[in-house]
Computed example of a mutant assay.
Amino acid sequence: MALGYRARKRLSLAILLIGLPAYVVVAVSLMNWLDARFGRLPIWAEVGVYLGLGFLWALPFRRVFRGVGQPDPDARD
């Protein structure tokens, strides 16, 4: 089912305000768990993991965010 422009805009706002901070907490908790379990990673590996996790969160939501910053295509002029 295709989402309309307004629904995508609201969903993207909810993802950014609720989902992204929750994902950051999960990612940092994962890194802290890895640190406690296996010891601290080298700084280059830690940066790589954070960059990978930072890129990974956006993949499932690409279709939701696509075109949200553009004017509403269904709006009247």
Rank of each mutant, 00 (worst) to 15 (best):
G19T: 09
V47M: 04
D77A: 12
R62G: 12
Q70F: 04
Q70P: 00
L56E: 08
R37M: 06
Y23K: 00
D74E: 10
R76V: 10
L56K: 05
V26F: 12
R40W: 11
M1N: 01
V49H: 01
A75Q: 06
G69K: 08
Y50L: 13
L59G: 01
L30F: 11
R8W: 09
G19D: 00
D74T: 11
R40C: 10
Q70C: 03
R6Q: 15
A7E: 15
I18K: 01
D72S: 07
V28A: 11
P60D: 12
I15F: 03
L20S: 04
L56W: 12
V28N: 00
L53D: 02
R37F: 06
R62N: 08
D77I: 02
L56T: 13
G54Q: 08
L34E: 05
L3A: 11
A7D: 15
G69A: 15
D77T: 11
L59F: 11
P21H: 07
G69L: 14
A36I: 02
D35K: 15
F65D: 09
R76D: 09
R63D: 14
N32H: 10
L16N: 15
L30I: 07
L17M: 13
D35E: 14
G39T: 03
V68E: 11
M31A: 09
P60M: 09
I43F: 05
P42N: 09
D35L: 13
Q70L: 14
W57D: 01
L20A: 04
M31G: 05
